[in-house]
């Protein structure tokens, strides 16, 4: 399977994603500069974390107009797999590939720590290696992870079973206490209606091998591979 890791000016988790895909999971991986205009040959495109364009104006607002984003949109419309992590999630919402917006954390601080997540939907191509209801610990590192969407959109996400991960307590209880950033409905990760685009604030690539202290994030990559090979 061939992964394209998009590199925007200010991306800083591109190497982590490349390492996870290439060295931990043994797949083909290539960096794609944000000015490139082709995604030919890629099976999955990853928008990594970071601070594209310094988060100027709003997170992801300027990166969303990078030349490669036309291709990412076309790729997604054709059913290609797109995974946006952290800043990648923010870019996908700005681009309209996912609904809602990531606002400043309710506590105003940058948060960098492990977060417990409840797997709400284990039947997406990004989460099929997990079990429904399973709690995984994956690092978050963001100042703007406070997911917001209007009531209609939240209901549509709930009804369509499109919330993949929610911030939870270690026992799987979804409570406000377990919500690090004020995200509505404790949303940590969602998929689009077709199920081929996922955005998540936590960093699965940072929890993809034992050396990193957790392999709880591996499931995201294993799910993608499993879906591709079957």
């Amino acid at each position: 399977m061939k992964f394209g890791i998009i590199v925007f000016p200010g991306s800083n988790c591109d190497h982590d994603c490349y390492h996870a895909v290439k060295h931990v999971f043994g797949q083909d991986a290539e960096y794609v500069w944000h000015k490139d205009t082709s995604l030919k040959g890629f099976d999955c495109v990853v928008l990594p974390g970071g601070f594209s364009y310094g988060d100027y104006l709003r997170t992801g607002a300027i990166a969303r107009f990078s030349p490669v984003m036309n291709e990412v949109t076309a790729f997604a419309k054709k059913g290609g797999l797109v995974l946006g992590i952290c800043n990648g999630f923010q870019i996908l919402t700005e681009a309209g590939l996912l609904p809602g917006v990531l606002m400043r954390n309710s506590g105003l601080k940058f948060i960098c720590r492990h977060a417990d997540l409840k797997v709400e939907n284990a039947s997406t191509v990004f989460s099929s290696s997990y079990k429904k209801g399973q709690v995984v610990s994956i690092p978050i590192a963001h100042a703007d992870g406070n997911y917001f969407a209007d009531d209609t959109t939240i209901k549509r996400l709930e009804d369509g079973d499109r919330i993949v991960f929610r911030y939870s307590a270690p026992d799987g209880q979804v409570t406000m206490d377990a919500n690090p950033n004020g995200a509505r409905a404790n949303i940590a990760g969602i998929v689009n209606e077709a199920g081929n685009v996922m955005g998540m604030m936590p960093h699965p690539e940072r929890a993809s091998e034992a050396e990193l202290g957790s392999t709880d994030g591996s499931g995201v990559f294993e799910s993608i591979l499993k879906g591709f090979l079957t």
């Binding site: 104006l57 917006v101 606002m103 209007d150």
Partner: peptide
């Protein structure tokens, strides 16, 4: 298109 995000 850019200066505001009309979702919020």
């Amino acid at each position: 298109r850019l200066l505001a995000n009309t979702v919020i």
